[in-house]
Amino acid sequence: MSNVITDKDGVKRYLITLHVNGDEHTILVKGNTTLTNALRDQLDLTGTKRGCELGDCGSCTVLFDGRPINSCMKLAVEAEGHDIVTIEGVAANGELDAIQQSMINHAAVQCGYCTPGMVLSAKALLTRNPHPTEPEVREAIAGNLCRCTGYVHIVEAVLAASRGDLIPDDAKHTMAGGAK
């Protein structure tokens, strides 16, 4: 952190480089800028949501060196040199990740506010443990509060993604229901 600008009130701003979704971004932040705010307000990565801003709800979840953290509880200046993945970095080559597709298939998204964090927590889980049990899925998303779905469809979606079962539910109904 060699580049520091001090304003007339003595407040310092630091030129930092963040590695986000495989890209390097050099931005100017204050010492008290949270990672959430740097991502949203400076990099326009608004998929990372601001919810409680106190570490409880998980809507600001990002992957930090592959591990889920609440970005509202991390200073941007502390994120330099770490590999950050936001929800915008999950789909590759224009194709949704299996977890994202599965969330759609299982109607696991209602208002959607919890969804980016939910997907990233699930992504971290499946990367470490490709075939989790239901309790393992529930534990992995325990820090992601959802006020809409009741979690059942979300858990089903993650388990289906882990099985590689990505046939949409309505397609299954058509197959089961025959030629209706």
Binding site: G58, T61, I69, M73, A140, A142
Partner: peptide
């Protein structure tokens, strides 16, 4: 303790 996002911090 807490939840994964906090136990990682």
């Amino acid at each position: 303790m807490a939840n994964t996002q906090i136990t990682n911090i």
